[in-house]
Design a protein around this nucleic acid. Structure first.
Lengths: 255, 255
DNA sequence: CGCAATATTGACCATCATCAATTGGCGTGG
DNA sequence: CCACGCCAATTGATGATGGTCAATATTGCG
């Protein structure tokens, strides 16, 4: 049951294909030819409502998906009905790149808010990777950075307090949003419910609520109506022990 | 401070290079030429004592490491001295493949017991990947399976009880050991201390001890002197909610 | 305006952490 | 061969972080 069948469909605009170039350029160097090749990549654009799967566990997708608008998350359900969210994704991300090499999805990818995604056929992606070294390197780096973020989340869930975890994820998402210029000053979009934060951090919604109140009262952030502001960025970083090395934003020094 | 400088060093034997072929064949199809290419790969063998880093956080390695003997783990230390282990590795694994594309280590790789590793220069690995499609696919799959295991651990630490987590990790390691024929019947090597299990699962050593006692008393396992036996494999799987899909051992159907 | 989803707060409780002491296994050296 | 010492395993007592259950307030939205 793919949520996007029967939904609005269109061919991609140039601006949308440009998004992919911008994303990959942020993680590896690309030649002019490589950028041209990316701009020629066939993509089909679909919209997906909030809280719907883009790809579900057990699926064997034939396409990768580039997130154009909205937020998504990867998650797994447990037998008792609880959920673990394993990553949040923002525009520019390619959350199911892995389906290129692992046929069966071992988790689901769902929207958090209404989203627009571009579907890229595996065949096309494979031939691009085969042909262009720079694109291949960018894809490698992207999925390895993905894994690095998983590891950092494990550290948080395993060894950090609830206060530290929440501060940390705010820092992480703020940094990721800044990298693709999706924020305005110290203010960031925050379309995630407290229940979703709880599912991401191994907590309950009730506890997330209390901790957010503490962090607000401590004057580190404000948060309201889908927006969060880092009032005291240094303090927030310190509370969350945020050290962005694992995001590997280091200047990319060619292949 | 590389732990292996000044330690015993040697060129690899054919059997050791064969290990790499076996590992990669277990995750992707290789042609005869590709296997030959792998057997020709220059490797230098080193021994590393127990509890020493093979690569440390912050390092910029010039080599990848193939684990030949012993167990290793990837981990991060926290400011308060606590530790999160993010993966266990057994012979055949290439735990720092990521250093091929991400210059700086964002975590450390250390031994659990005395180990023997083969070092492969990035240059050689890169040229192999560039030249041989099958080897490239195997490497991709390997690092994506790695990421899938991280995600599964997140699920455990975030949402499973201590009993479930411990049962789950026993199932996982048993399955991995069976895949490379490192066990004997229902008995598996288990060189990991309770403290290390605790650091992997986000628990304390004391609690791991109590939970292991429960699981032993329930007749699911026995564990002693570096060896563990699955007495009731089905029961253990059920307790741990172990579903090995995420290990992607599905029959590999060509590229 | 009214419903539904989300956020918020309170009271109580459980899992797991902390602190501390004891036991057992095993290698080493006298 | 046995005593010593070290490390890991084990057990007990107590406590704190975060979970559960439940009620109420807000907010967004048609």
């Amino acid at each position: 049951m793919c949520a996007w069948t029967n939904l609005m469909t269109d061919f991609s605009t140039r601006a949308e294909r440009q998004r992919l170039v911008l994303k990959l350029e942020s993680i590896a160097d690309l030649t002019g030819e490589e950028k041209q090749a990316l701009l020629g990549l066939p993509m089909v654009v679909k919209t997906v409502p909030a809280d719907h799967d883009i790809v579900s566990i057990g699926d064997c997708p034939s396409h990768c998906c580039l997130l154009l608008e909205g937020w998504a998350c990867r998650y797994k359900m447990l037998p008792d009905g609880s959920r673990q969210i394993m990553s949040f994704h923002i525009p520019g991300d390619i959350p199911d790149l892995q389906s290129l090499y692992l046929k069966t999805m071992d988790h689901s990818l769902g929207t958090i808010v209404p989203a627009k995604v571009a579907l890229i056929h595996h065949r096309d992606m494979h031939s691009l990777i085969r042909q262009w070294e720079g694109i291949s390197v960018a894809m490698w780096r992207d999925s390895l950075i993905d894994a690095a973020i998983f590891r950092e989340w494990m550290v948080g869930i395993g060894r950090r307090s609830a206060h530290q975890r929440i501060a940390h994820i705010l820092c992480e998402m703020a940094t990721k949003l800044r990298m693709v210029a999706l924020n305005d000053g110290d203010t960031y979009p925050w379309p995630v419910t407290q229940q979703e934060v709880a599912d991401a951090l191994g907590l309950t919604d009730v506890h997330v609520n209390r901790v957010l109140r503490d962090i607000r009262k401590a004057g580190l952030i404000t948060m309201a109506r889908g927006v969060f502001t880092a009032v005291n960025w240094e303090g927030l970083k310190e509370l969350g022990q945020f050290e962005p090395t694992y995001l590997h934003v280091e200047p990319v020094l060619a292949a």
